[in-house]
Design a protein around this nucleic acid. Structure first.
Lengths: 333, 333
DNA sequence: AAACTCTGTGTAAGTGCTTACATTTCACAA
DNA sequence: TTGTGAAATGTAAGCACTTACACAGAGTTT
């Protein structure tokens, strides 16, 4: 069942059918109704490929993230997919991992799909604050389609970033720990992404403000999964630590387990703050104080930017959102 | 830069270029090398639409699940996406929610994308054990492309299901609770999907085996999120309960929080078992005993079935996998 | 009544690829 | 030298749509 069949059944030319499909104002309402009826009766659906060939687009967005099985990204993907569907866009998903070559290949591949926009989730795509050659493949992509980076920042034409002001948000959280009387605050991180560096910078500046000297022993790198984090801390956590700022909730949970194992009381002797405010946070006992990095807000911002672009208007190349501290049981404030 | 340009630059016809792209044996190695060089020099990429038009396929699979932000589905999606990518397939994702009309629309929409196979994740697509009209839209879809149901069962031509034997797996877990001496075991569930019913059936049969009379008060329906589950239990949990079997980890965590709030000791006075063995399980204190429903194994099975079909071989219409109990701190065995 | 709009519809030329079929080329046997 | 068949390449007809341009017919204007 193709456009010719419909044209014949409706007694019009294929051009008219095409116009009806595209709801062109050039067709009279009477004809439109007739053609629509025939289309429905035969449940005709235009061939996407032919349509794509003619139009050069298929109303599809590409989403690339390092790993959808991560709760933060899964949420973002779900949000993007759901919202774009409402505007009639389909979503192609690609998980890229975090290796440079893989990310590059993922972006290159998804571009071939003639997507209308590319969404990158995560700060791993902007290896160095967005200004070294490392992110060049993203800038290259932006020559073809608008690129929206969620939770990362890359400078460049046709690139629109929405991110949580991790630096300031972290600084605020660390300031609260200091106000609690904590002096030996561990910065617990895993990867060395742009956002991790922003957080570290916020952490350091909060310490500096308070006149607390920097201490390299308090910049702690741990492995990724909860159990390993606990082990790493058991093996090497400096004894004087009385506060832990973790760059994600998983790390924070590992820290909590470490505390339990060593008998350190939380939050009496040790405060812990996580990041992302995932479901993990409320599973813990005590429940984890965590920073909501506003994933949905960032997605919403990106979507709005894209819609604005679609209407031929300008969008702001970078939008910062402040995170919000969700105070729970692992801190005293 | 299209096939004509390449043909001209390489001094061959477009047919030859096309053959080179498709690595046809009809082209001499010499010509192949020459054409390939030109393609690379101009980084030519065939147009997917034109290719799709000619071939009728674009090497794409469709994935439909109720909600990717659910950890279980996110994992499955990630696994499918990653593995199919290795075979050169792209993935289109669509979250359908759990409303009949939405699921139906989601499947219909994704079919228009000329996918090569459809993957449905979750038992919500098989409303009644797979044999009522409710799943007819899936059977309709199966007329167009092979359908693979992960963690659900639908009978029908060209439909291939991989699922955890929830009934027996649940029965085993409940038997262990009984062996622990529990007699008043709550069956804590949220939705009424096929898999939830299977679990209930396993629960009931384990009770029956042990000669424990059925008690409707012990079939407990709770809302979805952790906090609500706790509230629901606080409001209405029968006091005699000494064991809880929850149909997912989120419910189990809610149960654990309920126990803590009421001062019931776990596992001394109350045992709790969750389902899915998600990351939530190890965040808890005590850590949650949970059933690993083998999501990756199911995905692997589906992928293998699809590859077998691709090679023109037969695949088994239904594959059962037994879940595994991960014993942790919320039970005594 | 002729000239002129305007609206609605049709014609036909793309869009970039695949592939059945036709044709050329070439090695080798007769 | 010619003939033969296989291997390599080209030609052209799809594939299902969009859209610039052409044109017909109904009103309007003069």
């Amino acid at each position: 069942m193709n456009i010719y069949d419909i044209a014949e059944l409706a007694g019009v030319s294929i051009a008219t059918v095409s116009r009806v499909v595209n709801d062109s104002p050039l067709v009279s309402d009477k004809t439109k109704a007739r053609v629509r009826k025939v289309m429905e009766e035969n449940n005709y659906v235009p061939n996407v490929f032919a349509r794509g060939l003619g139009l050069g687009t298929m109303k599809t967005i590409g989403i690339v993230c390092p790993d959808v099985s991560d709760a933060y990204m899964a949420k973002a993907v779900a949000y993007l997919e759901k919202n774009f569907r409402e505007y009639g866009y389909d979503s192609i998903l690609q998980c890229s991992g975090r290796e440079y070559e893989d990310m590059r290949a993922a972006v290159a591949n998804i571009l071939n799909k003639k997507i209308d926009a590319l969404f990158l989730i995560g700060s791993c795509y902007c290896v160095d604050g967005g200004d070294t050659a490392a992110a060049d493949y993203v800038r290259e992509a932006a020559k073809q389609v608008p690129v929206f980076v969620i939770n990362g920042s890359i400078s460049g034409d046709n690139i629109y970033c929405a991110l949580c002001d991790d630096r300031e948000t972290t600084a605020q959280a660390v300031r609260e720990l200091i106000r609690e009387g904590r002096r030996n605050i561990l910065f617990l991180h895993h990867s060395d992404t742009f956002s991790a560096r922003q957080k570290r910078s916020g952490y350091l500046s909060a310490l500096a403000e308070a006149g607390i000297p920097e201490n390299d022993n308090l910049l702690f790198h741990a492995r990724e999964d909860i159990e390993s984090v606990k082990q790493d801390l058991l093996a090497q956590c400096p004894p004087e630590v009385d506060g832990i700022f973790a760059t994600n909730d998983r790390l924070a949970v590992g820290a909590l387990k470490f505390a339990r194992e060593t008998g350190i009381r939380v939050p009496e002797e040790l405060s812990i703050i996580g990041y992302d405010d995932s479901e993990l946070a409320i599973c813990c006992q005590p429940e984890l104080t965590s920073i909501d990095s506003m994933g949905e807000t960032l997605c919403r911002t990106s979507i709005d930017s894209m819609l604005r672009l679609l209407r031929g208007r300008k969008a702001s190349p970078i939008t910062y959102t402040k995170g919000t501290l969700r105070r729970r049981g692992t801190t005293r404030f």
